[in-house]
Design a binder for these strands. Structure first.
Lengths: 135, 135, 135, 135
DNA sequence: GTGGTCTAGACCACT
DNA sequence: GTGGTCTAGACCACA
């Protein structure tokens, strides 16, 4: 389940975050459920506890989980997630940047758009499988 | 012309690369034309020569320019630029990642898709025509 | 009545203390009246007994309650509560800290003062009258 | 200048942050000026580099400084500081909490208000000394 | 040189 | 037990 690539350019704590986000999005980690403790997870994925904690801390900052000191870390109820406009702008900028990169590679507009749509539509199924429509 | 944001998380050499790619793709830097020397450019944009050096080296690795020792660096003929599949996959991953983030933020599939399309279409003219609208 | 926010950064025992202080100051818990036992309260508010225990111990240290071994914990007569200067200094420091933060955020002195006064005055009734308005 | 109290309840990185905020507010560290490097400061105040970095990172998150990787950390121009409404609400909550604490201590409303005002007005001079009116 | 990340420990307060 | 903080090292990419 947990996929880590130590050779990746992406830092480990970011990969840990991405994995957890995926699990949260697909309801494998349901709302209000408890995440593994920092120590547990760090042992399980063979990573230093500090690295896991950094991931948890950042997830909390972004609103995906909340922490009760001395008790554990829990998935934020989706109803409670507030859309952070600053974060949204960052993601938009990231999308724009990626799209530009496609054009820099020599793809024309239509081809680039095609690539983007194929990625999005591929993602559609991924979410249909794991998510619930009536939640 | 050259837009650098030192405060950005993006490294300087990547920003230099992006600027040059933009200039190449919009034919401001025509095929086979000579790029400014590392020293010239670094002075012009007030950046460490090593940084420009790294941008040039990476551009060459990706096929955008080629170097003739002792003579200079030249823009590869667009016809000869081959799509770097590794780079393409990176960008695809980036797109997917950003799209997922949109959904993580509480947007449903259709809303997220809408956001993406608006970004793409807003960006349409910039690279299609090789000109700028109001910047 | 008892308001606990597990998601808060404030530790549970501090929140328990604050709730009890509030009840004492508003005479809901009258002078010399008996507090619920640690076990009772911990069951009632669904909190670990150790946590309640710690709250009681700290309240006693600060003079709000006193314990009669084997009998129970009782509210100190308000006349006998002496201002704990150490605690007072802590609160003062906290106030100053918060005020500085307001100014750090770009508010000028007058604006920051305005914010503080609005908060104070909004809070006026809650403790003056011992009642609640709309909560 | 730098005041650290290792025995304090406040964590070291928070104290480091507070010290730096103070220096920034009083223009000892002017806009766009460079903060000491993580290593320099950590050596100077005899604290682990990681702790200093945590402080820098958090200051950046709150908008007081910005980072240029490989170059250094710089004071954000005051004109660029955006008022983060989330942070503002946190400070307001902190103020309200502190004010409640005063009342819990047995101070009546007027006395508590007096305490608050005295603190604020004490701060006024502190800011007049170090700050500039025409900035 | 800089900041960013990571490891392998440790101690603390809280539950 | 939990998360939070801290130390004392280390390596990396970047400028």
């Amino acid at each position: 389940m947990f996929q880590l690539d130590l050779k990746s350019r992406k830092s480990i704590y970011e990969q840990v975050m991405d994995n957890l986000k995926e699990l949260i999005m697909t309801d494998v980690l349901a709302s209000e459920s408890k995440l593994p403790s920092v120590r547990e997870l760090s042992k399980y994925i063979a990573v230093n506890p500090n690295t896991v904690q950094k991931a948890y801390r950042e997830l909390e900052r972004q609103g995906y989980v909340y922490t009760v000191s001395g008790v554990g870390t829990f998935v934020t109820d989706k109803k409670d997630i507030v859309l952070d406009s600053v974060e949204l702008e960052k993601v938009k900028a990231k999308l724009l940047d990626a799209f530009k990169q496609l054009m820099y590679m020599g793809l024309d507009f239509d081809k680039a758009k095609e690539v983007v749509l194929s990625i999005i539509n591929g993602e559609e199924c991924l979410s249909c499988k794991g998510g619930k429509k009536d939640d």
